[in-house]
Structures are given as C-alpha cells and as structure tokens.
C-alpha cells in the first residue's frame, strides 16, 4: 500500500547514484531485489515507479524486480531450507528457534545508464 512512497525513494536513491560527471545521463533500468516477505506488490510498485520517474533522469526506465525467496536456518540443528508456506518452524526438528537468512530485502542493486552516444555524436 505504500508502493508510491517506495517508488519515490527508489527514484531518489537512483538519481543520487548517477555519477556527478554524468549529470545528464538517463537511467534505462533499475535492478531491485524484493524479498518475498517484504510488504510490496511488484505489479503495484512497477506502476508507481513509472509515475514517480516522470520528469526525472529515470523517466521511462524499466524497473527490474528480482524476487528473493525466504530462506531460513535452524539454530538447533543447522538445517537450511526455503520457506514457501507460512510455517516458521524447522522442517527437520520442529524447533521454533530459526533465523531468517533472506526474504526481507528491498534493495537497489544497480542502475543502468542508457548509452546515448550515438544520438550525441555529430
């Protein structure tokens, strides 16, 4: 439900990440990692991103979302597995003492600057 706020943050972080000496660069693609546990709906985020990116160096950029599965490790028996149902007890020994290893991500990995040399060279 707060996808618009997140989209605006993405635009802000991506804009800040454009190197100073590429002040007029256009961002073609933002690569984002979204954990399955994150309270974000990818479709909704893509829509909001498109709107938030207007009139910024990210206008028209593609938001590429890599969904990260929820991985866990049991503190008691060290078993590691992927959680695909809302059961947060160890598959092997049933212990409730587990550590979530991944699945909470909401990270910008990279941005890709469009190569526009062709349009600028006379």
């Amino acid at each position: 439900m707060h996808e618009m706020g997140i989209a605006m943050q993405i635009v802000e972080i991506a804009t800040e990440s454009i190197p100073k000496d590429m002040a007029h660069a256009r961002v073609a693609r933002v690569n984002l990692k979204v954990g399955k546990l994150a309270a974000v709906v990818p479709e909704s985020l893509r829509f909001c991103f498109e709107v938030a990116a207007r009139e910024t160096p990210l206008a028209g950029a593609e938001l590429h979302i890599e969904e990260i599965p929820v991985e866990a490790r049991c503190n008691d028996c060290n078993h590691e597995w992927t959680i695909s149902e809302p059961v947060f007890t160890c598959q092997k020994c049933n212990s409730g003492a587990i550590k979530i290893l991944s699945g909470r991500e909401l990270d910008i990995e990279t941005i890709e600057i469009a190569d526009e040399d062709a349009t600028n060279v006379s």
Binding site: I10, P19, L106, T110, E112, I113, D115, A118
Partner: peptide
C-alpha cells in the same frame, strides 16, 4: 565527444536498502 561504448547499458553498482 567520442563514442566509446555503443552496445550495452552501463551498470552502476548501488547496493542500498530502499
């Protein structure tokens, strides 16, 4: 101005939590 890269987009590492 020279045209040094013509093909792929240039990837810039960000790695920041939104």
């Amino acid at each position: 101005v020279k045209n040094v890269q013509t093909s792929d987009n240039r990837k810039i590492k960000v790695v920041r939590r939104v």
